[in-house]
Simulated assay, not measured.
Amino acid sequence: MTKTNPGNFFEDFRLGQVIRHATPRTVTAGDVALYTALYGSRFAVQSSDAFAKAVGYPRSPVDDLLVFHIVFGKTVPDISLNAVANLGYADCRFIRPVFPGDTLSAQSEIIGLKETSSGKTGVVYVRSQGFNQSGDLVLSYIRWVMVRKRDEMSQVAEQSVPSLPEVVSVEEFGHALPQIAGKLWDDELAGSRARWDDYRIGERIDHVDGTTVEEAEHMLATRLYQNTAKVHFNQHSEGAGRFGRRLIYGGHVISIARALSFNGLGNGFHIAGINGGRHVAPLFAGGTVYAWSEILGREPLPRRDDVGALRVRTFATCDKPCAEFPGRSSQSYDEGVILDLDYWLLIPR
């Protein structure tokens, strides 16, 4: 009987396989405070019980991305402990709010497998879900990750690449969201006067500020999520060895970009869904992250007149201020781009 967990390799996965992940996690006010210390996020709904109650929440909800990272961290020992790279995200839906005191657990289903042309690795497509202590679904997302083989000569009997939606439908949003009292939404306290009607499709917003990442803080952040991927901690791991230093968890970049987006999107109080995302290039300690966003769409929510949805595409860069809006041109990315994230942001009307 094997007592230690070496993680799954590509040939260990099977289509339709369901994995129930270990270690449920009760989210505390301490987790929220540490998350704020790491990223400096200033969104009022997640920062103030008084503000949250005034606009319709029972108290401040946990930051959407903290929920995402905790659920993601549960999946790492079973899905991506032997990963070469996390390749992308799709069909991510934040279904109901999480509050301090809630306990999160996770499970995943393997929905696709595809061996790479080298034969040394394969891409695993997985839908992961997070649940609270009552069994209510709070988060669902698809990601695909390149995983090493244990034996390069091994064969995987059944392979399939799933069809993924390009955009999460706004019909998915708002069912568990409280009615937001827009008249009680204090723009001054929220830090922005711009609401849903004030944004235009095609508008570009330079979030201006930058955040330099230190070695200790990115490892502390990843441990906060109980993410055990070796490349983030172990200088001698195979993944870190490829670059000669530890890789920063891609979710760390997403959270930095979200925190920076307060400057320009300060009333965007809830990430409702992620349509797609890609970690374009790795980030290492010492790099400074900047971000800018483009408004791709504006959609009213069905049967809701209190909030609207903005489709936002945020690019994060390393050591490259975003005044010139570096992004993707044709099939390639401009130098310095490290993150390309397409998501729906809810904002009061």
Results as ranks from 00 to 15, higher is better:
P321K: 00
E299P: 01
K320W: 02
V84K: 11
E188M: 05
Y125G: 05
G7I: 10
G336K: 01
G277P: 01
G287D: 14
P302V: 05
E172W: 03
D151H: 14
N234P: 00
R200A: 12
Y333G: 03
A229H: 15
A323C: 02
N82Y: 03
R96K: 13
V156M: 06
R195I: 05
T288R: 14
F131Q: 03
L346C: 11
T75A: 14
F43M: 08
G250R: 03
P300A: 13
Q226F: 13
S118M: 03
N5H: 12
L247E: 02
R14Q: 13
E171H: 12
L87F: 07
A29N: 11
G88Q: 09
L301G: 07
V213Q: 04
L34V: 13
I254M: 12
R96L: 07
D186P: 07
M1I: 07
T28C: 09
Q129Y: 03
V138D: 08
L346W: 02
S163L: 14
R223S: 14
P24K: 11
F325M: 03
V167R: 15
S332E: 12
R258D: 13
V312W: 00
R200Q: 12
S128W: 06
M153L: 11
G287H: 10
N5Y: 07
D305I: 07
L345C: 10
G40S: 06
R148L: 12
S117C: 01
T103W: 10
D91M: 09
T23Q: 13
Q331S: 15
S154P: 02
G239I: 11
L265H: 01
L139N: 04
L38Y: 15
A44W: 01
Y89C: 04
G130K: 05
L220H: 10
I111W: 04
M1H: 07
L189M: 13
T26V: 11
A272S: 15
H218A: 01
G174F: 02
G251F: 06
Q17H: 06
W185Y: 15
P77E: 10
F131A: 05
G112H: 04
V18F: 05
P282E: 15
T23R: 13
Q107T: 08
G241D: 05
Q46E: 09
F315P: 00
S332H: 12
Y57A: 04
S192C: 12
R258P: 00
A281Y: 01
D64E: 15
Y225I: 03
F9D: 02
G273E: 05
I205M: 00
D63I: 01
V312I: 15
M1W: 09
L87P: 01
A229M: 07
K149G: 05
G119L: 06
E152I: 14
